Amino acid sequence: MPLRASVTLRYGPYSALGLSLEHRAYRLEGLQAVLEEDGHFVTLEKVDYWNVVELVVNGEVVFECNIKDLEFGGDGKLDPLCEEARIAVRKAY
């Protein structure tokens, strides 16, 4: 994958601590930081699918997970899902 690739980070609504179902980007901060550290341009896009996170590179979904499985806040360096996502984007064509 070339440096400075455009990555679309799609995310759906989820319920946190029994609060209403909403789109929240707090759990995406670490993932976004890891991708931007690699030199990629990240665009956030809200989708209607509950609890989903998808990374899209060149129109292809290269990584997906449950948004609740991502660590809350932080830089993403200690989150194993962020490392999986980084590798998936690097392998994308």
Rank of each mutant, 00 (worst) to 15 (best):
M1N: 07
P2F: 07
P2L: 14
P2N: 14
L3G: 14
L3C: 04
R4S: 14
R4F: 12
R4Y: 08
A5P: 04
S6P: 04
S6H: 13
V7N: 05
V7A: 04
T8E: 13
T8W: 06
L9P: 01
L9Y: 03
L9F: 12
L9K: 09
L9T: 06
R10T: 02
R10S: 11
R10L: 14
R10F: 04
Y11H: 15
Y11K: 04
G12I: 06
G12S: 09
P13C: 08
A16Y: 03
A16T: 12
L17G: 12
L17C: 07
L17H: 13
L19M: 15
L19A: 15
S20T: 13
L21C: 14
E22T: 15
E22P: 00
H23E: 09
H23C: 05
R24M: 04
R24I: 00
R27S: 02
L28S: 06
E29R: 12
E29F: 03
E29S: 07
G30L: 01
L31Y: 01
Q32G: 03
Q32M: 11
V34H: 00
V34Q: 10
L35K: 03
L35C: 03
E37V: 05
E37Q: 15
E37M: 13
E37I: 00
D38L: 15
D38T: 02
H40E: 09
V42T: 04
V42M: 06
T43A: 11
T43H: 09
T43K: 12
L44C: 04
E45G: 08
E45P: 01
E45V: 06
K46L: 06
K46W: 02
D48K: 12
Y49G: 03
Y49C: 07
N51S: 15
V52M: 08
V53L: 04
E54I: 01
E54P: 00
E54A: 05
L55W: 07
L55Y: 10
V56Y: 05
V57F: 06
N58Y: 14
N58E: 15
G59N: 09
G59D: 10
G59W: 13
G59H: 10
G59Y: 11
E60K: 15
V61P: 01
V61L: 11
V61Y: 07
F63A: 02
F63E: 01
E64C: 14
E64G: 11
E64K: 08
E64A: 11
C65M: 07
C65T: 15
C65A: 14
C65E: 05
I67Q: 11
I67G: 02
I67A: 04
K68Y: 00
K68D: 08
D69Q: 07
D69W: 08
D69F: 04
L70G: 05
L70A: 08
L70F: 08
E71H: 07
E71T: 06
F72G: 02
F72N: 12
F72H: 10
G74I: 06
G74Y: 10
G74E: 05
G74L: 11
G76C: 04
G76W: 03
K77G: 10
K77W: 06
L78N: 10
D79H: 04
D79Y: 01
D79S: 08
P80Q: 12
L81K: 12
L81D: 02
L81W: 02
C82V: 08
C82N: 13
E83S: 15
E84Y: 10
E84P: 00
A85P: 00
R86K: 15
I87S: 09
A88N: 09
A88I: 11
V89E: 02
V89C: 05
R90S: 11
K91W: 10
A92V: 03
Y93H: 07
Y93A: 14
Y93M: 04
